[in-house]
Design a binder for these strands. Structure first.
Lengths: 185, 185
DNA sequence: TGCCGCATGTAATTAGTTACATGATTTC
DNA sequence: GAAATCATGTAACTAATTACATGCGGCA
């Protein structure tokens, strides 16, 4: 339900699907991924619903641009959403499902490999976000407009840190168990 | 992609859609939600793919049961998945999108309300998981088979704790700012 | 002039949610 | 025998992913 609202948010000024996709990539990519195909089809659906109006405009390069504007109704929908209780999505981590079934096989080696794999990818992400965070904080001193964006990044960082610690603890516990018998020796 | 593998996992023994839905609810509900309608349609699709075979059986109560069994191919698919690198899904937290746009309005009161709302619901969840964890640990002492299930629960708990701390820090920072001006007084 | 990249999309498929339909059995 | 509930689904819809299509301008 929120891609709709993201789009409305970015349409404070008139913009094309391409513009919106770029805005999302630039300022929200770590917290909201959207394919252009999804953006375009959402835009069409929203126009049909009366939340947007579009006009065709000549482009200086490439084909004509379809430029969207919010209607009064679109603006209302957006401000209502800003005030509404956030939805807590149900995250499905497939690694947990894998662990669930590995608990029967009791193959520690396979489990350790699995956990190390996820951990490494979490670490990779974390480093990317930390770099972003550093860049943000340099920028914020000059522009002073990024307080909330920093908060968002901070949440991603903390979540990843908690998960990396979890991976490491789990790997550590596995190492201490006798092979083939996860709990009782 | 993983509901398919969850189903295959639960089909170690023959079971109906209803059985599988119940298994998921009982042992995985905090990490994987699935509606029965989704389970049933997935089962049909998987049979068409050749991963399962079904037979109709008389039930002692209610209508006939359609009982599914894994084919050789289904078993292979499942064990391959167990060994495969887990997918890291892209979690979309709509509260972050809301924050992103609130960063322009600079309405601290609204933002604080938003954050307190999410925090309270995180706390609620955390308490539920903690209770589950306590129940698990009592059980594990007797049965000794739940090591990995405990790990899974532990991940949820740690993630929630990190997020609750984040909410509280964010709320604290907001309180210290002069109203209407989030960063520079 | 041919192809690279920008800008705009369509189509097909998979995943998941919400709402409803239906038949049988148990319980009151 | 009516109501609850168990068991099995269908239909319609929203969300998201993947793969492909096309037109136009600039540049080598």
């Amino acid at each position: 339900m929120s891609l709709k609202n993201l789009i409305l948010g970015y349409l404070e000024k008139p913009a094309s699907g391409y513009d919106i996709k770029r805005s999302i990539d630039e300022s929200l990519s770590h917290l909201w991924a959207a394919e252009s195909s999804q953006v375009y089809s959402k835009l069409r659906a929203m126009e049909k619903q009366g939340l947007l109006k579009s006009t065709k405009e000549k482009s200086s390069k490439g084909p004509d641009r379809r430029v969207y504007r919010r209607t009064r109704e679109g603006e209302k929908t957006f401000t209502d959403w800003l005030e509404s209780d956030p939805e807590l999505s149900h995250e499905r981590l497939s690694v947990l499902a894998q662990l669930h079934f590995l608990s029967r096989s009791r193959n520690h080696e396979q489990t350790t490999t699995l956990l190390e794999g996820v951990r490494d990818r979490f670490v990779e992400r974390l480093e990317k976000y930390k770099a972003l965070e550093a860049a943000e904080s340099r920028k914020a001193d000059e522009e002073g407009d990024e307080f909330f964006d920093k908060l968002a990044l901070d949440l991603s960082v903390r979540t990843l840190q908690a998960r990396i610690e979890w991976c490491n603890d789990a790997i550590g516990q596995l190492k201490q168990l006798s092979p083939g018998e996860p709990k009782h020796a």
